[in-house]
């Protein structure tokens, strides 16, 4: 049981790390939000599952935390994306001649 928990914890840490790496590597704020949100959400969920395998009696609070992360993280990133668009930031394009919305 604890080995499975350790593996989930490790996978969670890897995804959190990849999310942070995506934040550094991506060229504009929208792509940073994309890589950041997805990686950190699944990373946090995986850590929660890992802790559950170590401590099954904490399940109730872990469920509350998981639902909380699942609901707030996409809302937060959508609202930042909308603010970024409102402040006049335009998405990065590979080719110069493509039209924007």
């Amino acid at each position: 049981m604890t080995v499975i928990g350790d593996i989930f914890l490790l996978v969670g840490a890897v995804f959190l790390c990849l999310a942070a790496l995506g934040m550094v590597r991506m060229p504009d704020v929208f792509n940073r939000i994309q890589t950041g949100t997805k990686g950190s959400t699944l990373g946090a969920l995986s850590v929660l599952i890992g802790v559950f395998f170590h401590h099954p009696d904490w399940w109730a609070k872990l469920v509350v935390l998981a639902v909380f992360v699942l609901v707030t993280s996409p809302v937060g990133s959508s609202i930042i994306a909308r603010a970024a668009l409102a402040t006049g930031l335009r998405p990065w394009h590979q080719a110069e001649d493509e039209e924007t919305v």
Binding site: R32, G36, V69, S77, L89
Partner: peptide
């Protein structure tokens, strides 16, 4: 830009939340 910094702060808080669960 400010938006970049807000995104970074957002991701850092999620990482911190996960780290706190781990600390527990």
């Amino acid at each position: 830009t400010v938006a970049d910094r807000v995104v970074a702060a957002d991701i850092l808080t999620i990482i911190t939340t996960a780290a706190l669960v781990w600390l527990a």
